[in-house]
Structures are given as C-alpha cells and as structure tokens.
Computed example of a mutant assay.
Amino acid sequence: MNPALILLAETQCEVRHDVRDFLEQSGFRAMAAASAHDIFHALDETSIDAVVLDAALRGVDGLDLCRDVRERSDVPIILVGANISEVDRVVGLELGADDYMVKPYSARELAARLRAVMRRGRNERMLVSHGFGHALFDGWTVDFGRREVIAPDGALVSFTAAEFSLLAVFVDHPQTIVARARLMELAGVRDGGSSDRSVDVLVSRLRRKLSRGGNPAPIVTVRSAGYMFSAPVERR
C-alpha cells in the first residue's frame, strides 16, 4: 500500500518546503500547494488522503476555502493559522475542518495529528470485522463498508470522515451515556483542554444532518455527564 498523500497548502515558501520534507521523512507522501487553484487541481487530479490548510493562504479567506474544499471532498482537513481565535476555530470546525493547529507549529506534532485524523475509521472497521455491516435507527441506515448514510426518504446524506466516525461511536453505544472525554477518545477527536469544543461542534453538525422531516436527531445532551444516542439501534 502506498503511503498516505498529504496536500500541504502553506502560504510561506520556506515553511512549505521544510514541512513537506519532514512529512516525507516521516513516511508520508506530500504535495505542496501555494494557492486555491493548486488545491482544487490536486483534489481533481489526485487521490489526496488529507489536507493541511493555511488559513492565511494568499488571495483567499482560509475559512471560505475550508468550506469550498469540504464541499468538494470528505478528505480530512487540518486548518492552521497564526492568529486563530477560539471563534475562528469553532467556525472552521463548523465549515468542515477536522482539526486545527496554531502557527508556529511543530512538524512532528502535525505528523501525529495527520495520523490521528486518518485513524478515525478504526471504530467502523472494527464493527464490520465483528459482522455488523449496517446499523438501522429511526429509518436511517448506516453502511459501514461503503461509509454511507441513507436517510429515511432514501436520500444519500454526505458525512465528513470525522462526522461519520462520531456517528459510528454513537450507534455502537446506543441508549448509553458516553462521557465527553470518552467520546473524543473513541471518535479520534483531539482533546486540547477545556476550551476545545471540537466534539461539541461535531455533535452539532451531526444533529443538523440527522434532523429531517421535522424529526429531531436522537442525540441528547446529558448535563455534566456527556451525550446519549437515544434511538434503539438494529445491527445487521
């Protein structure tokens, strides 16, 4: 199997080259990108495994670009920036980023983060290996083999890698309170401290996608305890 191919979109030429070299020394393949055009060309022409996206990429707004990349692909995105506030981080996560890092950052830590976001499928792969290829709840169908989510009306609903992994954790622990820290661990969401709202934003995104036809999503917040997937789940 070929090493994972990382698209490194970085505004500073020296940083771009240094980080690309480090990633290649760490067992990845890496492509450098200096513009939105470079990013979209790479996504259209190559099978990219993850994107490292500089929020200060010249000529575009990084958050808008994050949204545009997410609309084209469910590839994991790590958003980086020199002056990312908590509001920016939350907005980035809302727009589809899987993780974020503040510049200047350690290339070694970036490599570790990349491995983490690309491991997020391990929970659903484990379910398939145990003979559970599908999960059904409230008319919804989750196909772990195809990584697809089908709504009660038959529509195929697009989920990012992080959203799908979080949903896999919920359907694997139905009607059970899962502590926030445990949920982050199982879904591969980084725990960066008390101010890190990654998992909360992902839950919010899941709720919006699972709320259809006037029916609320079966995800309940249990105050001071965590979250609970309230629907019964049938496994096949």
Rank of each mutant, 00 (worst) to 15 (best):
H134P: 00
I84L: 15
S106E: 01
R58D: 14
A34G: 13
V15H: 03
V69W: 02
V19W: 04
C66F: 03
V52N: 05
L63H: 12
V15F: 03
F22G: 03
R89M: 07
A56C: 12
D138K: 09
G121C: 04
I150P: 00
L136W: 10
L127A: 13
V142D: 05
V149H: 01
A56Q: 15
L65N: 08
E94M: 11
W140K: 12
L93C: 06
G131D: 00
V15K: 01
Q12F: 05
C66P: 00
Y100E: 02
R147S: 13
D153N: 15
A9E: 05
A116V: 02
G121N: 03
L93Q: 09
D64G: 03
K103P: 00
F28Q: 09
R125D: 00
R70L: 02
A116M: 12
R89L: 04
V60R: 09
V90P: 00
T11N: 15
A112R: 08
E14M: 05
A107H: 11
C66W: 03
A55P: 04
S26N: 09
E10D: 14
I84E: 05
V128M: 00
N83S: 15
V60D: 08
L8S: 07
E94N: 09
F132A: 08
R58G: 11
G133D: 14
F22C: 03
R58A: 15
R125V: 01
R72S: 10
V102R: 01
A55G: 07
D61R: 07
V15Y: 00
G62C: 01
L57M: 13
M126H: 08
H130W: 01
R58L: 13
V142I: 14
E94G: 13
H130E: 02
